[in-house]
Nucleic acid binder design. Sequence first.
DNA 1: GTCTATACAGTGATAGAC
DNA 2: GTCTATCACTGTATAGAC
Lengths: 228, 228
Amino acid sequence: MPGIDTKDRIVSAAERLFAERGFAGTSLRTVTTKAGVNLAAIHYHFGTKDALLRAVFERRIGPLNAQRLERLDRLEAEGSPTLEAVLEAFLSPIMTLKRDLEGEGLVWSRFIGRVYSEPIEVVETMIREQFEVVGQRFVTAFGRCQPDLSELEVVERLQFIIGVMSHSLIDLNRIGLPAAQQGAGPETLQHMIAFLAAGFRAPSAAKNSHSDANPQPNLPQPPQARAS
Amino acid sequence: MPGIDTKDRIVSAAERLFAERGFAGTSLRTVTTKAGVNLAAIHYHFGTKDALLRAVFERRIGPLNAQRLERLDRLEAEGSPTLEAVLEAFLSPIMTLKRDLEGEGLVWSRFIGRVYSEPIEVVETMIREQFEVVGQRFVTAFGRCQPDLSELEVVERLQFIIGVMSHSLIDLNRIGLPAAQQGAGPETLQHMIAFLAAGFRAPSAAKNSHSDANPQPNLPQPPQARAS
DNA sequence: GTCTATACAGTGATAGAC
DNA sequence: GTCTATCACTGTATAGAC
């Protein structure tokens, strides 16, 4: 029964190759050769190279975000979580992939790090869509930890957190960075959390702006940032 | 006199197009059409598309890093600079480009944001090379602000800083991020500095590891991170 | 429905005439 | 220095076999 898992074979081969060479650096012919299928099979099952990327991304991003939400649920069920705990719920699922050096985790981690830095439109759409699920939940959770911040400030600081996370993921996969690789051990996550918690606890900048009643209007916009 | 400024015209056209469409999304034929030169002229003057990217990058990155060093020099001549001042010397030159909305600054800023996120080898090499110039200087300066940190910890935290900076630059150029665009005003830099300074002042994680004499060996490696 | 073979327009790169 | 012609390769599209 040929083709019963053709789709999966293509996705798996693509994930590995995207992780190694990036999206633009991987040709569809390389993917089909590695997967042992015909070139046109990609266009039959996915239609376009962008759609293939999307399929690779979405196969794993769902469980990862579910893990984040599950951790946050558990924390909030126990009471008011600390800032460090919320940070760990947000960062730990994706960061601990680093340690899974032998399994699929590394491939996915490399893929994510690569894909994060592709300037193509699909990636931005994908990330934005997937992050809407967890974004508002974490904005709320972070906001509760630091009630003097406006929602806009919370979103801004969440952007900073995502920047650190994203950069750390990318650097993991870059060769020639001995210092950064040294820092890729299991303690890096704790260092990140300590740094980011201290940063997040910085006093609100709105304090000395002006003494108006409502200097920070509530913005209804979701965070819509790149995360995974 | 044809060709007297062919090289410059190519670089300028490429900068604009790379800023708008990214590197992979820009074909050499588009560049040559916009510059009004022949396709082969690129390969005559630069040899390869990667080399063209390099030329575009290096035309502006030198002055930008010089500005950073100049600010740091001035600070250190006046005495021991504060952490906030060092952060501003590092971040301000590239971040203030956002405000130059009409001039060449915007194009360059967009280009840098785009190029930062291209996963190609040239970019990594370029950034590493250019950052060696300023990297060690700022590692030293940051280390002086927080003497209890080992050099490895300083490098790690500088990576966090670069992550926030890099992500902020990329987001500037992404559409559909209203909250982030709101935050792209002139006060964003101050918010970043406040956040990062507080994070950088977090106590060293080496404190509670073990009571050995030298728990953090001095690593001679330069930071070698992506920055610009 | 699933897969294969083949063809097409566009890409970066190169060689050689002027 | 500049141009034309051409190369191998890319993502994509389609016709047709099972």
